[in-house]
Amino acid sequence: MNILLVHAHPERTSVTHQLAGISSEVLKGQGHEVVQSDLYAMGWKAVFDEQDFPSRANRDRLSFIEESGHAFANGGQTADVEEEQRKLLAADAVILHFPLWWFSMPAIMKGWVDRVWAYGLAYGYRGAGNAHRYGEGGFAGKRALLAVAVGGPEIDYSPRGINGPLEQLLFPITHGTLFFPGMQVLPTFAVYGAAGLDDRGMAEASAAWRGRLDRLFEDAPIAFRPQNGGDYPDRHVLADHVAPGRTGLAAHIAEAGESRRVRPGD
C-alpha cells in the first residue's frame, strides 16, 4: 500500500515528530511505500490567497470556489499544490500527525487543507455540486487517521471533561475535512499529557502507536452516516426515523447494531 504521512510541528524532538518517525519505520517495515509531507520543513505556504491562482478566471473579484475550480480543471494550480494532490491521489491511507493547538490542528496544516482540497476534487466533485460528499468524492476508498499530541490530561477530554470529548472537538476535521471528500476515517489516536511526557510515557505511547499502525487496514472506521445511503432523503437533514430524539454531532454517527435503511438498487 501507499501511505502519506503529513505532519506539522517545528520541533524535531516533539511527540508529533517522534510518532511520525515511528510511522515511517513501522510502515516501511511492513513493506508499504511511505511518502511524507513535513510541512514546517517544506516551508509550506499556509495562507490561501490570490497567489494560488496565477491565471485568474475573474480579475475583478476573487471567488475562491470559482478560481479553485478553474485552476484545477485547467492545469492552473501552483506546483506545490499539484504535488500534494499527486501524493494524496496515490495514497491508500493518509495519516495526519499534529499537536492539538487551541482545539484544532496548527495553522500550517489547516492551510495545507485549504489550498490542496480543490474545487472539483475535494468538493464540487466532477462538477456535480454537493451530489458526491460525505462518503463519496475525490478521496473515496482511502483511509485516514489522526495522530494527535494533546498537551492536557486525558480526564479533561473525557465524556464530561471540561474541554469536551476529543472526538467531538475533532469532528470538523474527521467528518468535515476527511469524510466529506470520501475518506474512511479511523478513530483518533491521542497521546495525552504530551507537554510533560517523560521517557516512560513516550515509550508507552510509542508501543500503543505501533499497535495502531499494525491495524491500519483492519480497524473499523468511524460509522459516519453517508449522505447518499438513505439517512438524508434531501441530502441535507436526517430523516425523522433516523436517530430519533438525537441531535448534534452524535446524530451523524450510526450506533452499533443500528438498523440501516438501504436505497433500492444498493
Rank of each mutant, 00 (worst) to 15 (best):
E25M: 15
L27S: 14
L27F: 13
L27H: 10
G29N: 12
G29M: 14
G29F: 13
G29C: 13
Q30W: 15
G31R: 11
H32N: 15
E33H: 13
E33V: 13
V35S: 05
V35R: 08
S37G: 07
D38S: 07
D38H: 12
L39C: 05
M42V: 12
M42P: 05
K45S: 06
K45Q: 14
K45Y: 03
V47C: 10
E50V: 15
Q51P: 03
D52H: 12
F53V: 09
P54E: 05
R56D: 04
R56K: 14
N58K: 14
N58P: 03
L62Y: 11
S63N: 15
I65N: 07
I65V: 13
E66L: 14
E67V: 15
E67C: 14
G69Q: 06
H70N: 14
H70T: 12
G75P: 11
G76K: 08
G76R: 04
G76P: 02
Q77Y: 11
Q77G: 14
T78H: 03
V81K: 00
E83R: 10
E84K: 08
Q85G: 02
R86T: 07
K87E: 06
K87Y: 07
L88W: 02
L89F: 03
D92R: 12
A93N: 04
V94N: 04
V94R: 03
L96H: 02
H97T: 08
H97C: 13
F98S: 04
P99Q: 05
L100G: 00
W101F: 14
W102V: 09
F103Q: 08
F103E: 03
S104K: 07
S104Q: 08
P106H: 12
P106Q: 06
I108C: 12
K110L: 12
K110V: 10
G111N: 09
G111L: 05
V113F: 03
V113E: 06
V113N: 01
R115S: 03
V116G: 07
W117M: 08
W117D: 01
A118M: 01
Y119N: 11
Y119P: 00
L121M: 12
L121Y: 01
L121D: 01
Y123E: 12
Y123V: 07
G124D: 07
G124C: 07
Y125D: 01
Y125R: 01
R126I: 04
A128V: 05
G129A: 09
N130A: 02
N130D: 15
A131Q: 02
R133N: 05
E136T: 00
E136R: 00
G137K: 02
G138V: 11
A140R: 04
A140N: 06
A140G: 01
G141R: 04
A147K: 02
A147C: 15
A149P: 05
A149G: 01
G151A: 10
E154K: 12
E154C: 08
I155S: 13
D156S: 03
Y157S: 00
